[in-house]
Simulated assay, not measured.
Amino acid sequence: MAAAILCTGLLHNEAGGEPVTPASPERSQHLVSSKTLAPSIRPGLVEFRIGNKWQSGLHLIESQDESLVIGRDGWLHTISRTEKSESMRSVTGKFLPTTSVELRNQLRAEFGREFEVIATQNFLVVQPRGRGSRWPKMFEQCHRSFVNYMERRGVKVREGRFPMVAVVLPDARAMYDEIARLGIDVSRVAGLYANKCNRVMTHDGGALSSIAATVRHEAAHQSAFNCGVHSRVNDTPSWVTEGIGQMFEPTAMSSGRSGTRLVERVNKDSVRQLRETIDMDDPAEVARWVDRMIRSDDLFRNPTTIHTAYALAWSMMFYLAERDTDAFADILNFTATRPPFETYRSGQRMIDFERVVGSDVRDFSNRLTRFVADLPAK
């Protein structure tokens, strides 16, 4: 299982593994508090100061305490109310995201001569010199497979406005140092996607096979947030975001054909986890787990249930993707367009789920139980 999505990102319409213990999803740690959110503003061009450096960006959201701004490079920043008069000013002009050439030069300066920056159609991949084309090809293929899979199922996919960045560090220690440099608190991961800076990070210190599933999981998060499949500032349920990540862990899901047979698309680790922790012959027990999953993200925050939460999230999204594509597309299209920073309360989550899926939890769980029963675990 992979690391959680960390940090928050931007409004989707403005933005253009290794067997480890995953961190719990932290999308609730918004950059701007939902309790103090002011009425929506029309995004406007601003100049803002971070440290001693001024840069241009878009002012996205205003609250009583702070403002959320996105820079030309896709990074998100908060400007507190007390600093706003001295650190942010409105300007005229058009917002122009950083070009691939500009960002490539910035990455070269940021990581130094021991690294190279390889450009693909959709990525800038930072990696230690001499690693060849293995990583760039992997990230590019993951993204193309993701887009193909989503479009074939009616999910709205758009082209992102910012170049996607993937950073491959030479070993695990270097990766943790880089994660710490960015102010991210996480441990025991093979990789992660931090959507505050819109980067996937992993390391090249072990066999590729041991971390490939995590990389595919995190690359799916990055593709989802850059293509508008998820919004990067609203409260999307973890079973939706992490279910998608789990779906793309199998090798076949990044093969270019997204797996020609259903058996190739099955996350067998998730199937085994479900059968070990939930009585899948008891639809009532499955329904209790599904009900709890829909109503809140608590299962992802509890160390005793987190692995089962990832597996159950996978099964729910995989079932919809394979057996009810209309509901699969509707779930993603609906959650991607919810208002930014609006708390998604338990009751409303359930109402929306039953409306979109077209059945209650008991009926859905019965169908899910029969579907999982026929899936291979080996």
Rank of each mutant, 00 (worst) to 15 (best):
E102G: 14
F123Q: 00
L76S: 15
C142K: 04
L332N: 06
I179M: 04
F328I: 03
T99H: 12
Q348W: 08
V356Y: 04
E322H: 09
D279R: 09
F123A: 00
I50A: 09
R72M: 10
N105E: 15
W135G: 00
S238I: 05
R144A: 13
N226G: 13
G9E: 07
M150D: 05
S85L: 08
S238T: 14
G160Y: 15
A15M: 15
F334M: 06
I179W: 02
A219P: 00
L60F: 00
M138S: 13
E249C: 14
R129T: 11
T337R: 15
I179G: 01
V240K: 07
W314D: 10
F162D: 03
A172H: 11
D235Q: 09
R301P: 01
E47I: 01
S145G: 15
G243H: 02
T21K: 14
L60M: 07
K196C: 10
R257V: 13
F48C: 08
N195M: 12
F146E: 07
E110M: 11
R232W: 06
V32Q: 05
L182Y: 09
V69S: 04
P237I: 10
T260I: 12
R370G: 08
S231I: 01
L124E: 02
V266Q: 02
K137A: 15
Y176N: 01
S209R: 12
S63W: 03
L208A: 07
H77V: 06
S40A: 13
C197R: 14
L312M: 14
M280W: 13
S258C: 13
M201Q: 07
L192D: 06
V117W: 06
E285H: 00
Y176V: 01
I41R: 00
A172T: 12
I50N: 09
F371C: 09
H221M: 11
R72C: 06
F111G: 08
G74W: 14
M175E: 06
M317H: 02
Y149Q: 08
I70P: 01
M88V: 10
R295N: 05
E242Q: 12
R113N: 15
Y149L: 05
E102P: 09
V372Y: 04
A166E: 03
A336D: 06
L320E: 10
M247N: 05
L169K: 15
I244D: 02
Y193R: 07
C7M: 14
Q64D: 14
E242G: 07
L332Y: 02
G256T: 08
S87T: 04
R72G: 02
L182N: 08
V233N: 15
A212V: 13
V356A: 04
V263Q: 11
R161L: 14
L192Q: 09
N122C: 04
A309N: 13
R81F: 08
E249T: 14
D282G: 01
V240S: 04
V356P: 03
F225C: 04
C227D: 08
R89E: 11
F341W: 08
K53F: 02
P43N: 03
E102F: 11
S238W: 05
G130H: 06
M1V: 11
P376V: 02
D73G: 13
